[in-house]
């Protein structure tokens, strides 16, 4: 459990570039960020501004080209694939725009999946989460039998079931209509606060960002 004081994310001078026909294009160009336990942070910015890239770097899904990045005490500059995978598995919950549920597993199996991967499966907690997310009646269904909002609620539940200290959400409402998106986002924030979990939320919706403790804006590769 996070202490509420320790630094969960510590980024200094992060640089990330992607190759293009005209040579490498720098997407992040010296990003500094510090995040304490229990905080919720919204990262906004235009399409292509690099918000998702920043999130991926924090989640260890990608590696920086320069700068220092430590997440939950793990130095991501030196961690190998196995160590980064372990960090994600055991201490980070991820929520994607595309939901990314496992289509061949039921709602129940999807909900419990990451907690079981991390070896922290608690059926009572999953049941409680399912109740809170309004999924109790849908546990035997498969993802394709759910609406988009329902799928994203399953994804939120999956991310939180293992009680990770950090949750990363990448445009979680991007594929949902406005009303559904608001409801899902509110639910997510509620649950995150209840658990005293640190949240990084990437979104282009200022309305959604306003619900977070802190907002930063990504522009021209830097945070403002």
């Amino acid at each position: 459990m996070s202490s509420g004081k320790a630094e969960v994310v510590s980024a200094r001078g992060i640089v990330k570039a992607f190759p293009s026909a005209a040579g490498p294009v720098a997407v992040l160009n010296g990003v500094d960020l510090a995040l304490r336990g229990g905080e919720s942070l919204a990262v906004t910015g235009e399409s292509g501004s690099g918000k998702s890239t920043l999130l991926h770097l924090i989640g260890g899904l990608d590696v920086t080209d320069g700068g220092a990045l430590a997440v939950l005490g793990t130095d991501l500059r030196t961690a190998d694939d196995r160590a980064r995978a372990a960090l994600r598995r055991e201490r980070i919950g991820m929520i994607f725009q595309q939901f990314n549920l496992i289509p061949s597993l039921t709602v129940a199996a999807n909900l419990a999946f990451q907690a079981r991967l991390a070896g922290r499966h608690d059926p009572a907690r999953v049941a409680a989460l399912a109740g809170a997310l309004g999924l109790s009646q849908l546990m035997g269904r498969y993802p394709e039998q759910l609406s988009g909002g329902q799928q994203q609620r399953v994804a939120i539940g999956r991310a939180l079931a293992g009680q990770p200290p950090l949750v990363l959400a990448d445009e979680p409402t991007g594929n949902l209509d406005e009303a559904t998106g608001d409801a899902v986002a509110a639910l997510m924030l509620d649950l995150v606060r209840q658990q005293d979990t640190t949240l990084v939320l990437v979104t282009h919706s200022l309305r959604l960002a306003a619900l977070c403790d802190r907002q930063v804006h990504l522009h021209a590769g830097r945070l403002a």
């Binding site: 989640g59 899904l61 694939d81 196995r82 995978a85 372990a86 960090l87 994600r88 598995r89 055991e90 980070i92 991820m94 994607f96 990314n100 549920l101 496992i102 289509p103 061949s104 999946f113 990451q114 991967l117 991390a118 999956r158």
Partner: peptide
């Protein structure tokens, strides 16, 4: 492929 991506995003090492 997508399932593999999801699995890796959820923290399953590639080798595994």
């Amino acid at each position: 492929r997508q399932v593999v991506r999801t699995l890796r995003a959820l923290g399953v090492p590639l080798a595994e």
